[in-house]
Amino acid sequence: MKALWNRLSVGGRLCLAVIAAYFLCAAWGGARSLRARLADETPAYNVVNVSARYQPPSATHWMGTDNLGRDVSARLVQGAWISFQVGIGTSLIAIPLGVLLGLLGGYFGGKTDSLVVWLCATVASMPGLLFILAISLIAGKGILGILLGIGLTTWVGVCRTIRAEVMKHRDRAYVQAARVLGYSHLRIMFRHILPNVAHLILIQFSIRFPGSVATEVFISFLGIGVQGEPSWGVMIGNARMRLWQGVWWEMTFVTLAIFVLVLVFNHLADELRDILDPALRNERN
């Protein structure tokens, strides 16, 4: 990990710092909303103050207030918490699933591999966004539906990358040596091959995270995502109503928050790929 930090450029380190700042905000927001829920109080992001509707940014409300007089900055922080839940939660579904299937297919080959390839081809044929929306709809509107919808469709990319890499490792000397020593297939797969392809998991995570965050914004904006909590998508949908009358602050701050988080993650993903994937590095320069 330290070696990785040393190889990142200044821009990459800056991105990591921005992500860390977002994460701290998100964790703080999450902790506050959890405490409010345990104490049976209204969380800060949902405190309605009708007499203070549509207030532009000021010292008391840094980012202004929305149509019910709720503080936009408090809602934005809660939105960050939801985004991190989605980014991490979908990865916790997609990555183990993709890694497991990729390892099995790449290591055993033959019939197992055909099955894995068939699964990948079937899921990859589905029309992306619409399929995710259908899964979230059927699983029930809410964060669980989003996690399932995104998680159960994006594992294919992880699986294909891992499978291709495992196939290259399958017949290498260290794997043959482990086999001669009589190690079980499971042990070879997880103790010997997996560490050698683990860098791909990090790259995949850095690609999936901003993608999932963006998809969640889309789903929640359509109203079939997060319910009753200010997800960034919900906030955009809310801010849209009075944008025409010059209420710019909610829309501007939400848009900026999403843009910066996705941008730094995309940039970090590029740098990680350049550092960790030597094959790509040679092609690029």
Binding site: P210, F221, L263, N266
Partner: peptide, 22 residues
């Protein structure tokens, strides 16, 4: 291109309609 792909799709649609049309 990195900047373009980081703008959320929802924002593209809303901003395009708001500025260019409205």
């Amino acid at each position: 291109s990195t900047v373009l792909m980081s703008v959320n799709y929802v924002v593209w649609v809303l901003a395009g309609q708001f500025f260019l049309a409205y």
